[in-house]
């Protein structure tokens, strides 16, 4: 935990809020996502957090709609049933296709699934695989660029949330998050809080505090907070 805190602190010193068109650096560095070069200057492309670390410049976006990437875990909703498979909405301008052999049971319109992105073509349509149906629970969505904060370094943040609330949580890179059981209300509120404060530091501890406070408040009120 302490190592992560130090790492975060180090990162935070070199992370700052930028808008499109702002110059990040004029030094020769490697280019990560979110930047472009003009006249020898590295310039931010998106509204986000600029990072200059280990000889690389990049901007991590704070906003934006999800574009599928190979290997991503996504939570999707079946929107069309066809013979070869299913069209799945993944909260993106781009659709995903799930071949029938990639899911154990037949699916219907409106079913919620979690799957992995196998392949993305040049116009960003994707094929997803290893799909599993999710029953019950609640589906929320946050801005997909904030998802890494919800997961945390080495999944520390999400593990914390799951352990403290006892909820099952599946986080899609596409910003869709499925929550079931435990203190699901509190898990949901904690995730929204992370989304709002994604650009701040000290978040891991703050969220743990927040969840603990909410749970003790709920218990002292004798609230029916815990779902089974």
């Amino acid at each position: 935990m302490t190592d992560e805190k130090d790492a975060n602190a180090q990162q935070d010193v070199q992370r700052w809020l930028v808008t499109p068109g702002e110059v990040i650096t004029e030094e020769r560095v490697k280019l990560g996502p979110g930047v472009y070069v003009q006249d020898g200057k590295v310039i931010a492309k998106v509204l986000g957090l600029a990072e200059l670390r280990n000889g690389m410049a990049r901007v991590v976006p704070l906003e934006g709609n999800y574009v599928p990437k190979q290997g991503d875990t996504v939570v999707g909703i079946v929107v069309d049933v066809k013979i070869p498979g299913y069209d799945v909405d993944i909260n993106s301008p781009y659709k995903a296709f799930l071949p029938r052999d990639q899911v154990r049971e037949p699916l219907e319109y409106g079913d919620v699934i979690v799957a992995t992105v196998r392949f993305v073509d040049e116009v960003k349509n994707s094929v997803i695989e290893n799909a599993r149906k999710l029953e019950g629970g609640e589906l929320i969505y946050i801005a997909s660029p904030r998802v890494p904060r919800v997961i945390g370094k080495n999944a520390s943040m999400i593990t914390n949330i799951k352990n403290l609330t006892g909820s099952r949580v599946i986080v899609g890179a596409n910003g869709r998050i499925w929550i079931k059981g435990g203190y699901s209300d509190i898990a949901r509120d904690a995730i929204y809080k992370i989304e709002r404060e994604a650009h701040t530091h000290g978040l891991t501890d703050r969220i743990a505090e927040y969840i603990k406070d909410r749970i003790s408040e709920s218990e002292s009120n004798g609230e029916e907070g815990k779902e089974n």
């Binding site: 709609n65 909703i77 929107v79 909260n91 993106s92 301008p93 319109y109 919620v112 589906l139 969505y141």
Partner: peptide, 14 residues
């Protein structure tokens, strides 16, 4: 992105 398709799922929950 509009979350129109989340709406069916939400309906059940509501």
């Amino acid at each position: 992105m509009s979350n129109e398709f989340i709406w069916e799922f939400d309906k059940d929950r509501v």
